[in-house]
Amino acid sequence: MKLLCRFYDPDEGRISVDGADLASLRPDGADGWHRRVAAVFQDYVQFELSAYDNVAFGALERRGDERAVAEAVALAGADRVVGRLAEGWSTPLSRQFSSGTQLSGGEWQRLALARALFAVRAGGAGVLILDEPTAGLDVRGEAEVYERFLEVTRGTTTIVISHRFSTVRRVVEAGTHAELLAAGRVYATMYRLQAERFGTA
């Protein structure tokens, strides 16, 4: 994933984007590759700034667009989080600051998802990387993310890294899932291991 984000260049081989070598694209700047990639990393950043900044940072150049920010928040299911904040959008997210509020892990994760969504919808990112994006979410939250979130980002190349096979199953096209099961190698073993705990394999 770090290679895809162009934090590093590969020692050998090449990654191409629509046929162009990734290494030949500028990483930063207004038209750089970084703007084309949105990510929710496993150790996503918790900005101890306002709730608004936490989402608007997904696409800085569109940060004034309050409606787009609100949309991204609603789509990520983070509107409930913002709804209970004492000073709404402008509430600082840390109890270290007066009138600030501390969020739980799951609530932070929803804001991180909203930020990535804002990057995709407002910032025009074409690649979305989700690294264990639901580790802190409850069952309903997980199901929501994959049923709603991925629907919204259709047309965006989405890469999900997950240990939860229920997740992978939701993301990958059904045929591919079946192909992998039929191949009967690592994927099938790991999948069965998890599924049999539910007595359904």
Binding site: D43, V45, F57, Q96, F97
Partner: peptide, 27 residues
């Protein structure tokens, strides 16, 4: 209180955990 804010901003700009996302978002 504002000095604590300054410190958090400094951490965001300089500490490794935040570096990936801060770079990717061009922040």
């Amino acid at each position: 209180e504002d000095n604590r804010r300054l410190r958090h901003l400094l951490e965001l700009a300089t500490e490794p955990p935040a570096a990936k996302e801060v770079r990717l978002l061009g922040l």
